[in-house]
Structures are given as C-alpha cells and as structure tokens.
C-alpha cells in the first residue's frame, strides 16, 4: 500500500515537466480520478488550504493528501516520492549545465535565458496578484497598491525583503481579510 503510494507520487514528481500547473493537474488526476482518495470538492478545499501554507504549495498539498491516505507515513511517501527523484533530476541537469557553462555557446545561450527568466519572474508576480487580489474594483485597487508599495520600498528605499513581507503580513491581517477566496482563486493554482 505504502509502496504503491510512493510509486504514484514518484510518477507525479518525474512526469510533471515544467512544474506549476502541470504538477497540480497530475496530482488532481491521481487523487480524484484514479485513486479516488477524495472528491473534486474536497480536493479544491485541500488546495485552498495548501495555498495558505508557507513555502511550496504543492508540497503542502502532497502532505495533506498523504496524511489523509496513510497518516504520517503517507506524508513521507507522498512528499518524498514527489520531491526526491525530481530533485535528483534537477541536480543532474544542473551538473550537466555546469560542465558546459563556460563554453562560448552556453554563455551566448545564457544571454538569452537571463531576460526570459527575468520575464518569468515578473509573470509570477502578475499571476500571484491575479490569484490573490480580491474581486470588486475598490478592493482590487487596495490589494494592487500593497504590491506596488512593496515594490517601491524594495527598489527605491532598499527596504529588506523580510521587513517588506512582515509589513505585508501585518497590513493583511488587519485590513485585507474581508472576502474569502473564491472558487476561481482555487482553480487558478
């Protein structure tokens, strides 16, 4: 049972090239459609809880699902299965890249990869705002202003990341709580 569980999660970790949405879809297919550990509605609730977690949301989701199926051993099977082989692949790719990193061809490639990763980072910011900002124009404007304030504090005033995040947490707990996450937020991932 635990071996089967681990194998299922290894498949999730090694087949989801590119991470993010593709990983989430594979987990959903495994948990809701194939193994029927929980209903689509319960899965959405677990994903909503995962999005409240610190760090990588998909790890929290794997932990919650693993716990549901087989307690703490299930957590270890799910999280370990999803992450360890994927981390090994990541290390292998990194080592492979490092071996050619100083070649002129790799340096030229990096000159094109750098702006793309910068763009992807900005896109992550946009998607994060889109999935967390509340609906309704007034609330959404307030939320976007919080992001702009953090951007300005960091870029113009050199406020440290920790301080900006703590300020965001404080402002959020006091003023940004009204309106629960909607089903659209949950689907966004």
């Amino acid at each position: 049972m635990l071996a089967r569980l681990t194998r299922s999660w290894i498949a999730v970790g090694t087949q989801s090239v590119g991470g993010g949405t593709s990983t989430l879809l594979l987990i959903r297919r495994l948990a809701v459609e194939r193994e029927r550990w929980l209903s689509a509605r319960e899965f959405a609730e677990s994903w909503a809880l995962s999005q409240l977690s610190l760090g990588i949301h998909l790890v929290a989701l794997a932990g919650l699902l693993g716990q549901r199926v087989a307690g703490w051993r299930g957590v270890a099977a799910a999280v370990g299965g999803m992450l360890v082989p994927a981390a090994a692949i990541t290390v292998a790719l990194t080592a492979g890249y490092e071996a050619i990193a100083s070649s002129p061809l790799a340096r030229a490639a990096l000159a094109g990869i750098a702006p793309v990763t910068a763009g992807m980072t900005l896109a992550t910011a946009v998607l994060l705002i889109r999935s967390t900002a509340r609906h309704g124009r007034a609330l959404a404007i307030v939320d976007v202003l919080v992001s702009i304030a953090a951007l300005a504090a960091s870029a113009l005033l050199a406020v440290s990341a920790v301080v900006a995040i703590a300020a965001g947490a404080a402002v959020g707990a006091v003023a940004l709580g009204r309106e629960r996450p909607t089903s659209r937020d949950i689907q966004m991932g």
Partner: peptide, 17 residues
C-alpha cells in the same frame, strides 16, 4: 486569509523588483 493575502501581495511586489 488577510495575513496570507498580505504576504502574497508584498511578495509579488518584491518579485517584480
């Protein structure tokens, strides 16, 4: 919910920077 939203929004600003 508000605390998490605040952290996420501040993080989005930092990611842009």
């Amino acid at each position: 919910a508000g605390l998490v939203r605040g952290v996420a929004l501040a993080t989005a600003g930092l990611l842009a920077a």
